[in-house]
Simulated assay, not measured.
Amino acid sequence: MIMTVVPPVLIGLLYVVVMSLIREPHRRRFNAVMLAGAGGAYLSGGGLDGWEFAFTAAVTYCAYRGLESWTFIGVGWLLHTAWDVLHHLKGNPIIPFAHDSSLGCAICDPVIALWCFRGGPSLVDLVRSRWGLLDRSQGGAA
């Protein structure tokens, strides 16, 4: 059970840390593009027929609105979470040779969504400010 939950959570946290390296407003826009890509992940054989296209359209809308709104990106990741659960139970896995990959994705995606609902803050900047490590360009010592 732990090995089913911990790696996807760590992947979600790693995603957040890596995305934190991108400065705003590019971080939000890049994440909107990532969401749009994730929305089409099942199109080549997800097993839910025409519903795959309807889902992709819904996530694409969230991604488009996410160009200007972290909330829409978070909603899109939660939609993807629900779609992952549906695929784990009734469809094909997101990675064909990894049976529980959709389950892992369903665990990972809410981690990303929670970060998005918080406004996609830079965790790197948060750690720097907590530890008093200011960027030289901000007048502090690094």
Rank of each mutant, 00 (worst) to 15 (best):
L43W: 00
S44F: 15
S44H: 13
G45V: 11
G45R: 08
G45S: 08
G46V: 07
G46W: 02
L48K: 04
L48Q: 03
D49F: 13
D49S: 12
G50N: 06
G50K: 04
G50V: 04
W51P: 00
W51Y: 10
F53I: 09
F53N: 06
F53G: 05
A54E: 00
A54H: 03
F55I: 01
F55G: 01
F55D: 01
T56R: 01
T56G: 08
A57V: 04
A57C: 04
A57F: 01
A57G: 05
A58I: 03
V59Q: 03
V59T: 09
T60E: 06
T60V: 08
Y61F: 05
Y61K: 00
C62L: 01
A63C: 06
A63V: 04
Y64E: 03
R65C: 07
R65P: 03
R65K: 13
G66I: 01
G66F: 02
L67V: 02
E68N: 10
E68D: 09
S69G: 05
W70T: 02
T71R: 13
F72M: 06
F72Q: 03
F72H: 09
F72E: 08
G74W: 07
V75S: 03
G76V: 03
G76F: 00
W77G: 00
W77L: 08
W77N: 08
L79F: 00
L79W: 00
L79T: 00
T81V: 10
W83G: 01
W83Q: 05
D84A: 10
D84E: 13
L86T: 07
L86P: 04
L86S: 07
H88G: 10
L89V: 14
L89R: 13
L89E: 12
K90I: 14
K90W: 14
G91P: 07
I94S: 11
I94A: 15
I94D: 12
I95M: 15
P96K: 12
P96R: 10
F97Q: 14
F97W: 15
F97P: 05
H99R: 15
H99N: 15
H99I: 11
S101A: 14
G104K: 11
A106M: 14
A106P: 12
I107V: 11
C108F: 13
C108V: 12
D109W: 10
D109I: 08
P110T: 12
V111S: 11
V111W: 14
V111Y: 13
A113C: 09
A113P: 08
